[in-house]
Nucleic acid binder design. Structure first.
Length: 658
RNA sequence: GCCGGGUUAGCUCAGUGGUAGAGCAACGCACUUGUAAUGCGUAGGCCGUGGGUUCAACCCCCACACCCGGCUCCA
């Protein structure tokens, strides 16, 4: 048989016999690659190893230690999960089971409304390992929709997917299962189990095994909360036992940073159940940090020509009707309070009140941009199941600003806002930013197409002029205008959405806001909503996780703890404390009621930046022993040298450490 | 709001249908200590709240509150 030629990713051509598969190509390159191969691509499309290649195509081999390879083995592991569940729970309906970041899931419905327990997970996992040991090949076949409906007659969710695909109603979630072709592809890996799937899959179940089932959760069918609630099993799967262990270790490390745990251990704040869900009280140590954060924010806003305002927590319902929020967010607001002269609501946002301030008198173009700033307390009735520590709460404080400007000023204002935001976030140790531009959702928005387009372009241009790359999030905008959301990466690479810049052509209209232009004509200003930390509470939660509770010195509630070696050194220790306090540092003393080692340990677990140990030598020479967090012990440091060092540390933190 | 799991001493957690235990923390005494846990002792609990079943409930049932993991939602 004649040879054919295929192109490899490095651009080289390789000649293989006609009828060769991806596996054959891999084998022709090398035996190690053949062994590592899980799947391949042909002209960029992912295919099985058994796929026959045609002359002239570009071929690559997917191995397990690549993102694509992990994706394949996670998807295949999901199939094995479904197979195990179907075998252990006769009559189980299985719906969809994609690969996701770090793992996979599969959604099921068990007969009689049965639900999975944690015990079930271990038996399912055991069955999965049996299936993997059995070395069952994944065999692809294609059939007509009618045949597929017959094959999956007892599987209602599969039938629904097939029907949606054949009727052309399929969306992305279906495509992952079957693709969008005229024929339906299925994978069979034993006599008992066959599943709809676009593929590709690993050649055989024996190629899997470095996995763990993680948790059971409820999940709505097709993400529709009015639809049936399915039982979802989450798992993680990796190319090797080492990679799996590393992943589990990362989860453990992330768990140690949990802001709820640290907030409790470090006595920062709490969520008393007597107070109600999603409401926090700030303890003194947390309050110090919050005050420092807020002081810093105020200083920066003052420097940035913002004007500070205050507005009340309650407002007449008419105000929120006028702003349009009641139309869109009434469900997310605390229930109305009927009062003598009308209906009142807790405010879920500050913007309508800032609009009232703008509109309180005639404005001139000379006043613009007018930047109003408030640390405003707002209350949102978050649904009970969505509350999550500080990250999702019902009463919180926004570092909220509304900027009123002319159309001509808009672009420059957005551009300078990007600089401002990044500059402030860097002070809190965030240096890795990602930008998302959210566009209109026609179903949930107001305003003309032209104005939306103009606003969207303005935001994109501002990012572009800064050379910032961004992703488009289609339909993710607020009802009144498009927005830029800014995500940051924390110390261990997790992504958090913090800041937002939102354009609003709607509110100025609703509130009849105007300014008098230089030509004497009345014009409508453009409004920009902008939160930087977003919610102070949430930002604090993120900071706790980012710093793992070890706040930089400028933010630490207790910057220094002085430990006298013995009671004889108490007086000297106290004099050190007094000196440091007089310089404005936050310092405590821990008297020698316990052994030194124990007291050092307490200071370390309390994440105090500097532990000073003072004993006979120090009393004699006016020095201290410095034990810095994360550093080495230094003896015989003069008090004045330590003061300089501490001052430098604080100043460095306040300037972002740059 | 929906699905699942929880709630026992200040914290972390054991526990059995016959009204409860550990470690750490707290307090007291002894020890006076130079860089990550000294020893001994004491005290501390309406077993989330309210109903019910039972001779008897921390334990079984119901409701509610709060928390955790997801789903949905997030101005």
């Amino acid at each position: 048989m004649a040879d054919i030629s295929v192109l490899l990713p490095d651009g080289s051509a390789r000649s293989v016999p006609a009828g060769a598969t991806i596996a054959d190509v891999a084998a022709s390159i090398g035996s190690r690659l053949a062994k590592a191969a899980l799947a391949g691509t042909v002209n960029g499309d992912e295919v099985d190893l058994t796929t026959v290649v045609a002359d002239g195509v570009t071929v690559s081999v997917i191995t397990a230690d690549s993102d694509a390879g992990r994706h394949v083995l996670r998807h295949s592991t999901a199939h094995v999960l479904a197979q195990a569940v179907v075998q252990l729970f006769p009559g189980a309906q299985f719906s969809i089971g994609p690969a996701i970041e770090d793992g996979f899931y599969y959604d099921f419905e068990l007969p009689g409304g049965r639900t999975f327990s944690d015990d079930d997970l271990s038996s399912i996992e055991a069955r999965m390992r049996q299936i993997m040991k059995a070395n069952q090949p994944f065999i692809r076949s294609e059939l007509s929709a009618a045949d597929a409906l017959t094959l999956f007659a007892s599987q209602k969710y599969k039938c629904e997917i097939i029907e949606r695909v054949t009727s052309g109603a399929a969306d992305g979630s279906d495509a992952g299962e079957v693709g969008n072709s005229d024929t339906i592809s299925v994978y069979r890996n034993s006599d008992e189990f066959v599943d709809l799937c676009r593929g590709p899959h690993v050649p055989s179940t024996s190629r899997l095994g470095h996995f763990a089932l993680m948790k059971v959760a409820g999940a709505y069918w097709r993400g529709n909360e009015k639809g049936p609630m399915l039982q979802r099993i989450y798992g993680t799967a990796w190319e090797s036992e080492v990679a799996l262990k590393e992943h589990l270790h990362r989860l453990e490390e992330a768990g140690k940073r949990d802001h709820r745990k640290l907030a409790n251990e470090l006595d920062l704040l709490s969520f008393p159940s007597e107070l109600g869900g999603g409401l926090a009280v700030w303890h003194p140590k947390g309050a110090i940090i919050r005050k420092l954060m807020e002081d810093y924010s105020r200083q920066r806003h003052q420097d940035g020509d913002y004007q500070f305002v205050y507005t009340p927590h309650l407002a007449n319902a008419n105000l929120f009707a006028q702003s349009g929020h009641l139309d869109f967010y009434a469900d997310g607001m605390y229930p109305p309070m009927e009062m003598d002269n009308g209906t009142y609501y807790m405010k879920p946002m500050n913007c309508p009140m800032h609009c009232l301030i703008y509109g309180s008198r005639q404005r001139s173009y000379r006043e613009l941009p007018l930047r109003l700033f408030e640390l405003g307390n707002v209350y949102r009735y978050e649904r009970a199941g969505t509350l999550h520590g500080l990250l999702r709460i019902r009463g919180f404080t926004q570092d909220d600003s509304h900027i009123y400007c002319t159309e001509d000023q808009m672009a420059e204002e957005i551009a300078s806002l990007l600089d401002f935001i990044m500059s402030v976030l860097r002070r809190f140790g965030f240096n890795d930013f990602e930008f998302n531009l959210s566009t209109r959702d026609p179903e949930k928005s107001v305003g003309s197409d032209e104005i939306w387009e103009k606003a969207t372009i303005a935001l994109g241009d501002a990012l572009g002029s800064h050379g910032l790359e961004y992703k488009i999030k289609d339909g993710d905008a607020a009802f009144y205008g498009p927005k830029i959301d800014i995500d940051v990466r924390d110390a261990i690479g997790r992504k958090w959405q913090l800041s937002t810049i939102q354009l609003d052509f709607n509110s100025p209209e609703r509130f009849g806001l105007e300014y008098v232009g230089n030509d004497g004509q009345r014009r409508r200003p453009i409004m920009i909503h902008r939160a930087l930390m977003g919610s102070i509470e949430r930002f604090f939660g993120v900071l706790i996780e980012h710093y793992a509770g070890a706040f930089p010195t400028w933010l630490s509630p207790e910057q220094v703890r002085v430990l006298p070696v013995a009671a004889a050194h108490n007086e000297y220790a106290q004099s050190v404390v007094t000196q440091l306090k007089s310089r404005g540092f936050r310092v405590d003393i821990d008297h020698a009621d316990e052994q030194l080692g124990k007291r050092i340990r307490n200071a370390k677990t309390g994440k105090v930046p500097y532990v000073l140990v003072v004993g006979d030598d120090d009393v004699a020479h006016g020095t201290v022993g410095v034990n810095p967090r994360g550093g080495d012990v230094e003896r015989d440091v003069t008090v004045s040298a330590f003061v300089d060092r501490l001052a430098a540390d604080v100043a460095e933190g306040q300037s972002g450490g740059e």
